[in-house]
Amino acid sequence: MYIKSLIAVFLASILTENYVLNKFLGICPFLGVSKKLNTALGMSLSVTFVMILATATTWPIYTYILKPNDLAYLQTIVFILVIAALVQLVETILKKYIPPLYNSLGIYLPLITTNCAVLGVTMLVIEKGAIDLSFGYVQSLTNAFGAGIGFLVAMVLFAGVRQRIEKCDIPKFMQGLPITLVAASLVAVSFLGFQGLVEGLLG
């Protein structure tokens, strides 16, 4: 039962609650880095990594430090502080051990700091925990992992879409960003089709 609920959380965060295509968080890297498949992969993996690490640190901070002291209002500022530090850490690690990835991510790596998907995950899991008491630390981590994988799925799907767009004969006024945004909206609409799927599968 416990495992089943974890799987439900995981699948839901990928398909029905996809942070990019359903909640429209983290659109900047979604449009910026999805041109090539391998940078899209690298970016989403580092976002996933940061999401899990961020949730793993912010959840205890919120539950054991902020909440008992009635300081829940500090949530946003503390979370951003933690995320910024984590991104710096990831940047340092990448620079040292995976320089090609560091170079190809370029400007987008510091942008994870301000990637609202990361902040969104950390804050939304706490919101969920407040509503549903069984939604604890493990569920939060699963949700964060799922959100990262959901980001990866969206990025990889969209990188494929964009590669096909490049070969198409597009009217001049739609070339570049306009057609990309239209395509993004269509992919988002297609994700609406997953609504109710997880409940139906495991509910």
Binding site: I61, I65, L66, N69, L71, L74, I77, V78, L81, V82, A84, A85, Q88, L89, T92, I93, K95, K96, Y97, P99
Partner: peptide, 27 residues
């Protein structure tokens, strides 16, 4: 005081970790 201490504390710990990381993993 408490919020100040908490935020400053988190900032300090994060800064410390980053400082150590930048020395250990200096390129």
């Amino acid at each position: 005081l408490l919020p100040i201490i908490i935020v400053a504390g988190i900032g300090f710990v994060a800064g410390l970790i980053l400082a150590i990381a930048s020395i250990v993993m200096a390129v």
